[in-house]
């Protein structure tokens, strides 16, 4: 990794020091991200190491197998601002993560074997793209957000933003719009056109990603009291308000009346007296 900006030293230094503080096997491994939120039933198994409980602030190691149980959820925050939220009963490995803060470029590949994951892209997805491997399809993400669910009947990919390409041995489908879902049944099965995401399916994924009463334990404390970012408001819909088009309309109407009037003036049409 290259480091060129002063503002980028701190996290890199922290991660390096953290790596040194890890057991010898972990210290040699590459730290790829931090656990930002976790329920107790979230486990990590670094390569060649014992399985451990994932707790907030824990470092995530390259090739670490991440597993959640029936109540387990996990949120991993990466240096390039990529975020993975991993839902219940999920299994995932971060195969490769390389990020150069100076250029904003890098490589990220993950393998998802089971469960639900929400991906929110950071710098890497905006530049070189991110790849997610599943048992039946490979998903390429560029500048995007998506939710992937892997189950016995195949893989569903919900697009929330950006360009998402879903491919298998039979072909691929490119999703360019949010609110659409692609379902892949098998590695050799034809991938149907993206269909509009149902709100029920979306809510089901949110439920799978939710930690119930809260993944962090302990809530936000005083911070919630001064949380207030809901400004500025959304702009009004220009199709539902007056604007240059309605002003143009009024003036066009007046121009018509003026022309008709001038025609009448010249041809001597007498303008009638006002009505009583």
């Amino acid at each position: 990794m290259q480091i060129s900006r002063a503002g980028s030293w701190t996290p890199m230094l922290a991660l390096a020091l953290a790596a040194l503080a890890l057991p010898p096997g972990e210290a040699a491994a590459q730290v790829v991200g931090d656990v930002g939120a976790a329920t107790p039933l979230s486990l990590g198994t670094p390569p060649g190491e014992k399985t451990r409980n994932m707790v907030i602030g824990a470092r995530v190691i390259a090739n670490e197998l991440i597993q959640t149980g029936g109540e387990g959820t996990l949120n991993i925050l990466f240096l390039d601002r990529t975020t993975l939220s991993i839902g219940r009963n999920s299994r995932l490995v971060i195969d490769k993560y390389v990020y150069d803060p100076a250029t904003g470029r890098g490589v990220m590949t993950a393998t998802m074997a089971q469960g639900v994951m929400r991906f929110i892209g950071g710098q890497i997805s905006h530049t070189t793209g991110v790849k997610v491997l599943t048992p039946v399809a490979t998903i390429g993400v560029r500048g995007g957000m998506m939710t992937v669910s892997v189950g016995p009947d195949g893989v569903s990919v919900m697009s929330h933003y950006g360009h998402i390409d879903v491919a298998n041995d039979a072909g691929h489908q490119l999703m360019l719009r949010s609110g659409f879902t692609v379902h892949v049944r098998g590695r050799h099965d034809h991938i149907a056109m993206p269909g509009q995401t149902s709100l029920q399916a979306l809510d089901a994924n949110y439920a799978a990603l939710s930690g119930g009463q809260g993944s962090g334990g302990g809530g936000l404390g005083d911070a919630a009291a001064h949380f207030g970012v809901a400004d500025p408001p959304l702009p009004n819909d220009p199709d539902s308000m007056p604007g240059p088009d309605t002003i143009g309309m009024v003036n066009l109407g007046q121009a018509f009346v003026g022309n008709r009037s001038q025609q009448q003036q010249y041809n001597g049409a007498r303008i009638p007296r006002p009505r009583d």
Binding site: S85, G122, G219
Partner: peptide, 19 residues
């Protein structure tokens, strides 16, 4: 996207935070 990822992490701790 960065703001969304941070806020969704907040909801992991306080899922009913209305704001």
């Amino acid at each position: 996207e960065a703001a969304i990822s941070a806020l969704e992490r907040v909801l992991a701790f306080a899922p009913h935070l209305s704001r």
